[in-house]
């Protein structure tokens, strides 16, 4: 496993309440692993804690990256080990050029212009139109998300955490983002994808379902999605929406059985 969480419990800032309770799962190297769950289930909190954000500390448990305990490492140390995060509200630092922003995390600065152009192409932005622009109000939310992704890819990390990359975007862009995620995977980077949208999540190989801070299941993504639908009482949606590479993931009869309470492993 590239990343392992062992009995991770995360409290609120004031430590009065638990947001994520005793969660354990692993993320396989080279995979796209999606954490799903309804709003308020602790997905983003978990993502920020894995990244090591200043205000997100464990109450108990361990986080391991490449078999090394990183629980006490700072955000900078984790980034230098090869973990990064593309934010839900990305590229907020106005006043930097797009090229400068993308190159911030690049360790080897030789051929930096070419590297910036390459990653802009990876996220389907035309380099000539963006390298000399500044991060400011003239960029749309979608453009900022792609620039943020480009900056994360430019670091060549081992693990990219994508926090709700779909938020604020039109549904029509979904397929484009699937393509980008697959390109990232081809670059030998592992993706931990935080989303509450099943159409974005379906690109994932594996999934973890969080429900009110509790870990319900980690498995192949369609199986996780089926459990999510069952938990939310969305049988018809499940029959209509669970496709992978154009192929229906489960027969309708199987879905009926699952919703009748038959154990998934039977």
């Amino acid at each position: 496993m590239l990343l392992e969480l062992e009995n991770v419990t995360i409290p609120t800032f004031d430590k009065q309440r638990i947001i994520v309770n005793n969660v354990s799962f692993g993320v396989k190297e080279g995979s796209i692993h999606s954490i799903i769950g309804p709003n308020g289930s602790g997905k983003s909190t978990l993502a920020y804690t894995i990244m090591g954000l200043t205000n997100y500390k464990l109450k108990s448990g361990k986080i391991k990256f490449e078999d090394k305990d990183i629980t006490d490492k700072t955000i900078t140390e984790r980034a230098q080990l090869g973990i990064t995060l593309a934010w839900q509200e990305p590229a907020r630092i106005e006043g930097l050029s797009v090229a400068k922003y993308i190159s911030l995390g690049v360790k080897e600065k030789s051929r930096i212009k070419e590297k910036v152009k390459d990653v802009l192409q990876t996220v389907n932005l035309e380099p000539e139109k963006y390298v000399d622009r500044f991060i400011d109000d003239s960029l749309s939310g979608g453009e900022r998300k792609r620039i943020e992704l480009a900056a994360a890819i430019a670091m060549q990390p081992r693990l990219i955490i994508l926090d709700e990359p779909d938020s604020g975007l039109d549904v029509i862009i979904t397929e484009d983002f699937w393509n980008i995620f697959n390109k990232i995977k081809e670059l030998n980077m592992t993706i931990l994808l935080i989303t509450h949208r099943e159409d974005i999540g379906m690109v994932a190989d594996y999934g973890t379902l969080l429900w009110r801070g509790e870990h319900l299941i980690t498995d192949e993504f369609p199986k996780v999605m089926l459990q999510y639908c069952k938990k939310a009482g969305l049988k018809e949606f499940c029959k209509r929406a669970l496709f992978k590479n154009g192929v229906k993931c489960f027969d309708d009869d199987y879905i009926d059985k699952i919703f009748e309470g038959v154990d998934l492993n039977d």
Binding site: L53, I75, T76, A79, T84, R92, M155
Partner: peptide, 13 residues
Amino acid sequence: QKWLDELQAKGLT
């Protein structure tokens, strides 16, 4: 802090 976090997640001190 979130601005600092955004940049530190890119490996900056």
